[in-house]
Design a protein around this nucleic acid. Structure first.
Lengths: 113, 113
DNA sequence: CAATGAGTTGAAGAATTCTTCAACTGTAGG
DNA sequence: CCTACAGTTGAAGAATTCTTCAACTCATTG
């Protein structure tokens, strides 16, 4: 009784759907990073970050390894960069579309004065 | 005061994070489809589908056009197929990883009998 | 060993998102 | 005009996910 594929996909995308998690994945694309560094770049509280790192770990998209008293995170493999690129392409179009819409609304407002 | 990019990305992925929405996007990759057809393939209630179509519409990733008494949906452009491919690649790895883990657990259980 | 620093965890309340149902807006046909 | 059909909408309760805080683990240092 396998989990339907489209459900696994939905869960996968939901796992990506949080600003901190996105930023962490982007930072890790430059290579493994200790929590300390992530913390410095993201400027959020340790426990908030840890909470989101736990979500990423559970999904298996990152790995954590302990080195002395610091913990280092890394992408578990998989071409995350490629995914992000594809997402950015679409997102750019969507945002452009929204701006057009805004512009039209401003037009309409102008001409109704 | 622009929405931070990583927040827009997170919202974008969250918009994808629902099984029905994923399936609709996949069906629309074969070209525009009337609601009737989507309904037939997904086997859910009209109002449930409509609810999810509304989410997709609001994000701008699909368009709806009325033709007589039927409404036709289509991808708004953007290479959704590419995104799905990238996601599938990663997802495949993640699922494989989980299966390995399961296998190891079964091993452990065996040897502890 | 006590104390401190680095991260993690569990839990509770707040905020979002899902699901479902009834009511509604066209549109076509009798 | 009345009815039926195709989809959509709003709202309420249920289910998830977020945020935050205190407590905890583990390694390091004095």
């Amino acid at each position: 009784m396998p989990v339907p594929l489209y459900q696994a996909k939905a869960e996968f995308f939901r796992m990506l759907g949080h600003p901190v998690r996105i930023r962490v994945l982007e930072l890790l694309q430059d290579g493994p990073k200790p929590v300390r560094d992530l913390l410095a770049e993201l400027e959020i509280e340790p426990s908030s970050l840890s909470q989101q790192l736990a979500v990423l770990r559970r999904s298996g998209i990152v790995t954590a390894t302990r080195d002395g008293s610091t913990v280092v995170y890394a992408l578990a493999g998989g071409d995350v960069a490629d995914l992000m690129r594809a997402a950015r392409r679409i997102l750019t179009e969507l945002l452009a579309g929204q701006n057009e819409l805004l512009a039209e609304l401003r037009q309409a407002e102008q001409s109704s004065r």
